Computed example of a mutant assay.
Amino acid sequence: MLNNWVRYLPELLLVVDEAHHATAKTYRKLIKAVKDEMKSQGHENGFKMLGLTATPFRTDESEKGLLKLVFPGDIIYSEHLRNLINKGILAEPVFENLETKIAINKKLTARDIKNIEDFDKLPKDIAEEIAKSHERNGIIVSHYLKNSEKYKPLLIFAIDIITCNFIEQIVERQRR
């Protein structure tokens, strides 16, 4: 990309979708490489970057301030989630508890519970254990397929590609 594209551009707008991930080492490395290439060509003033995210505010203390390091221009436009739902841009989330009776083999700390209640995140090891439970995923997919008229189209957030592919296989198997 740097040799075939960036090197010949006097101006560049780098758009980073899901910009809250830009704090990851891989993103920072790519952004730095593009900036360095623009600078080496004498076009450092021609480099601009735009980050797009629905979650610019992190609740995990260890992540606060990281986006500011990657995007020093800060937030230039913000739209409240409720307004996007009211405008029909985002769907109204429907939260439903489905008892799977699958035991998780780790005790949650008070901070873990607070993070879950704030819709922040599960501890990584717990999230992986839950997401990779074939039995749990099968129960959830079965419930969805039996009630698909009620739920209409559904978007599933999986922890990784392997889990996503597994869920897809369950859906295909159960639809037959």
Rank of each mutant, 00 (worst) to 15 (best):
M1G: 07
M1R: 04
L2K: 02
L2H: 03
L2V: 15
N3D: 14
N4L: 04
N4A: 06
W5M: 12
R7S: 14
Y8P: 00
E11T: 11
L12F: 14
V16Y: 02
D17L: 05
E18T: 03
H20F: 13
H21R: 08
H21E: 07
A22S: 14
A24R: 05
K25N: 09
K25M: 12
T26F: 08
Y27C: 09
R28P: 01
R28I: 06
L30H: 03
I31Q: 09
K35H: 02
D36M: 05
E37F: 03
M38R: 03
Q41I: 08
Q41D: 02
H43Y: 15
H43G: 03
E44L: 00
N45P: 11
G46L: 09
G46N: 03
F47C: 09
M49G: 08
L50H: 02
G51W: 10
G51N: 03
L52I: 12
T53N: 07
A54Q: 05
F57D: 03
R58M: 14
E61P: 06
E63V: 00
K64I: 01
K64M: 14
L66D: 10
L69D: 11
V70G: 00
V70R: 02
F71C: 06
P72T: 00
G73M: 02
G73C: 05
G73Q: 06
I76R: 09
Y77A: 11
E79L: 02
E79A: 13
H80K: 12
L81H: 05
I85K: 01
N86P: 00
I89G: 11
L90H: 01
L90A: 13
L90D: 11
A91E: 09
E92S: 04
E92M: 05
P93N: 07
V94E: 10
E96A: 02
E96W: 02
N97D: 08
E99S: 04
E99R: 09
T100M: 04
K101F: 06
K101R: 14
A103S: 09
A103R: 10
N105S: 07
N105Y: 01
N105K: 14
K106I: 05
T109S: 15
A110K: 10
D112Q: 07
I116C: 01
I116R: 06
E117D: 08
D118V: 01
K121G: 13
L122G: 10
P123M: 03
P123T: 08
K124M: 11
D125N: 15
D125F: 11
I126V: 15
A127R: 14
E129I: 03
E129M: 10
E129H: 11
A131G: 14
K132F: 12
S133P: 00
S133D: 08
H134N: 06
E135C: 05
N137H: 05
G138K: 10
G138V: 03
I140S: 09
S142H: 12
S142I: 02
Y144M: 01
L145Y: 13
K146V: 07
K146D: 11
N147I: 00
S148K: 15
E149T: 00
Y151W: 15
K152G: 15
P153H: 07
L154A: 09
I156C: 04
F157C: 15
A158Y: 00
A158T: 11
A158R: 04
I159E: 13
I159M: 12
D160K: 04
I167N: 03
I167Y: 05
E168L: 13
I170V: 15
I170A: 07
V171Q: 09
V171T: 08
Q174L: 15
Q174C: 01
Q174I: 03
R176V: 04
R176F: 13
R176L: 06
